[in-house]
Amino acid sequence: MVSRRRASTLLSASVATLLLTAPVRASELVPYAVIGDAIPLPLAGAVGDASAGRAIVVNRTYTCLLCHSGPFTEQRFQGDLAPSLAGTGSRWSEGQLRLRLVDASRLNAATIMPSYYRADGLQRVGDAWLGKPILSAQQIEDVVAYLTTLQNPS
């Protein structure tokens, strides 16, 4: 019987091995290193701006509120397909949030969470979006900076 802790270490180690050997991404995307279930370092060394991140999260174009709700009292329409973003910063580290935004499908192939910083391995992408990630490296960092501020679980 493998202990729970050991099982999770094993799992992280194998996930890390898998992820570090993943093929190189589309050329305009900056490379990043996945350690365990996180991307510890900011993409492109960018510094995130939390208020810009909040503006992205509540902007329908960037799709977050189609599925998530959160502490946005001014937003009338919020989805319920995914967990509330309230308290996100207390549940996940900055690096864990970064990987979940960049490519959540690496952690759960069945997730409905889009990969916000990925441009390959997708089928029939419309011309307007072909070869582009949903968010830029800077925008990913802005959203990560904002989500880490969400410490209150309600």
Binding site: L81, I112, P114, S115, L122, Q123, R124, V125, W129, I134
Partner: peptide, 12 residues
């Protein structure tokens, strides 16, 4: 699954 959001009709 299709498109930049990588979703299939069945997912929703």
């Amino acid at each position: 699954r299709q498109g930049q959001l990588n979703l299939a009709c069945t997912n929703c």
